[in-house]
Structure formats: C-alpha cells, structure tokens
Amino acid sequence: MKDVKTPPSAEGRGDTVSRRSLLGAALAAVTLAPGITLYAGPAAAAADGAKRWGLLIDTTRCDSGCSACVTACGAEHGWSDAGRARPDQAPQWVRKVDVRDPATGRTASLPIMCQHCAKPPCVDVCPTGASFKRADGIVLVDRHICIGCRYCMMACPYKARSFVHEPVTGQRPGSPRGMGTVEACNLCVTRVDAGGRPVCVDACAGAGRSAILFGDLDDPGSAISRRIREVAPARIRDDLRLDTGVYYQGI
C-alpha cells in the first residue's frame, strides 16, 4: 500500500515548503490510493521564507488603563479565565506591563507577548524540537511533541510562555491548547495564514488607539519597515542580540 508522505524533517522544513508548492503546481492532485487524492487542489504553503512577520508597538498611544489587546487575545484563543484561585498559574499569552524610570519618573505602558526572536533561546533549548521557528519567523510550540519539560520557560528572557497547569475543555477550534504543554503568543498564525492580522492589532484599533502595527519586516517597502526606519524604535533586551520581531516605539 502506498503510504502517506512522511512528514518533513525538522531541519528541512524551510525548503520543503517551496518544494511542496512546486509539486502542487505540477500535480494538482496526488494520487494516494485508487480513488484517493491527497490534494484536492494546490494547497497554499503559507509559511513563506521570504517574509518575516513582526509588530511595531507605539507605546505613546498605549496606556495602563487599556487592555483591549489582552482581552481580545484571551477571547480569540480561549485562554482568559479571570478569577482563578492561583493567578500565578494563569495562562499568559500577552500581558500589559507598566515601566517607570526611577531617575526621571517617566512611565510607559506596553503589551509584552512572544517577541518572535530570529534567534529564539526557547528553540535552542527545547529537547524535542517542539519549540520551533516557522519559515516566516513566527515562533511556535508544536504541542504534538511538547513533553512539558518547561526548559523553554527557563530560557525565555521575556517570560512570554506559560504552562497549562490543568485540564482544558472547550478550546477554540483554531487554538488548540492542553494540559501539560507550554503555550505562548502564536502571532495569530491561523489568521496570518489566511492573509489577516493578529487579533490584538484589530482590538487596539477598535479601542481607538491603533498602537500596534503588523507587517513584513523583510519587505523594505512595507508600512512597518518604513515606520521602523523613520522612528528608530527599541527592542526589549536588545543587548542579548536575539533579533526580536517585536519593536517598541517610545520607551
């Protein structure tokens, strides 16, 4: 019996995508067994190695009274559960942080989520390769092979990841999450693959602030690249040289 194509190896994933799109173009349908087609049509390989998705957050438009991005993320991915007995075990895909400079008294408020590093420490330390970076720069947890060792949480400088401490039911269809595995901001990868933007970007605009800009950092002509050239934003813990994909203006 012809077997289903084996999954691509972790190392070769980047170029597998382009190979697959070539194949998909040549053969609109791959015959698996008599009468069975693997692809009904050419499937879009969404993780594009020519792109690097990122965010630019204008902290001058953000303030500590607003948490629209956090609320929207919790609703979109089904992780918000206020009023739990142990807030220290609460899931935290994105959080609002207030920063104050004791020397000048200047304050800023900003959301911190996975910074989608180009050189992510969580990916380096993950023993099974469950922590990985997609071709387009989005850092994800493959929870099918996450064993729940939490070493990535030890390694992340941003405390961006949380561990699911209890059984979960009623997950959102596009956002699987389960007990014993680690989770974090996935840059709304399902929306992005469908050509959309992360939900926090829309929520921030909906709250009348439009402080979050999403786009392709590798495209010099994109709105986000132009703004980054213009305003010279900072990145959190840039001294670690992790080349994060989330920029902050005004800190």
């Binding site: 995508v17 499937a43 879009a44 969404a46 493959d142 990868v189 399902t190």
Partner: peptide, 20 residues
C-alpha cells in the same frame, strides 16, 4: 488511514502553515 492523514496534515499545518 485516518491517523496517517491527520498526522501528515498536522505537521504540514503546524510547521508549514498549509491549511487545506
């Protein structure tokens, strides 16, 4: 074969963003 189809699809989707 449903388990093989699902497993194949799962790796394509999670790592490549391929979502047929």
């Amino acid at each position: 074969n449903h388990m093989d189809l699902l497993k194949h699809q799962r790796d394509d989707t999670v790592h490549g963003g391929i979502r047929p």
